[in-house]
Amino acid sequence: MSKILQSAKIALVLTLISALIAGVVSLVNQLTYEKIEENLEADRRASITAIFGSEQLSYEPMSELPEEVTGVYTVSEGDRALGYCVNLLTGGFGGDIDLMVGVGEDGRIIGVSIVSMSETPGLGTKVGAASYLAGYIGKSGELTLGREVDGVSGATVSSKAVLAGVNTALQALSQMNLIGGEAE
């Protein structure tokens, strides 16, 4: 009997400690939640602003997304629609690359930017350079490495990851009937 009591006491102590820690974590979560949301939002706004090159734009998230993408936004400047921005994760060399792809209503790419990645420093990270990503601007339809866009030498996997991500973004938009599937 005393053995059972002792086990119960051990379990109780562990539960109490867990409850205490859960309390601490939830308190910190409450204190930081808004600030974290703000940071994420600022990040998103910065990427979209960089792609569309306008400070006064507004964007709205869309619902019912294809499962390959994490977010689709309609971007407009005042009353003028600028196009769509697709956010998605694509598998790179060192984990997922968080990609933002801006596409005009005509199906042409307005810009590509990388929100975060963990590619090899000095090699794979070169795909994040603005000069490289500029190679995607104006392209549309199914893209192939070496034809419509070049890869970065020494970073084939990372280049292919970005390319795959951009293709997925374009496909997602045409699936949602936002752009024509066969835009050339």
Binding site: L14, S18, I21, V24, V28, T32, D43
Partner: peptide, 23 residues
């Protein structure tokens, strides 16, 4: 087990704080 619970709790708290103030 108790140590791990305590440590992981603090790590989560620090992670949230960093996400908020050292993004």
């Amino acid at each position: 087990a108790a140590y791990i619970v305590i440590i992981s709790g603090f790590v989560t708290a620090i992670e949230l704080l960093m996400k908020a103030y050292f993004y």
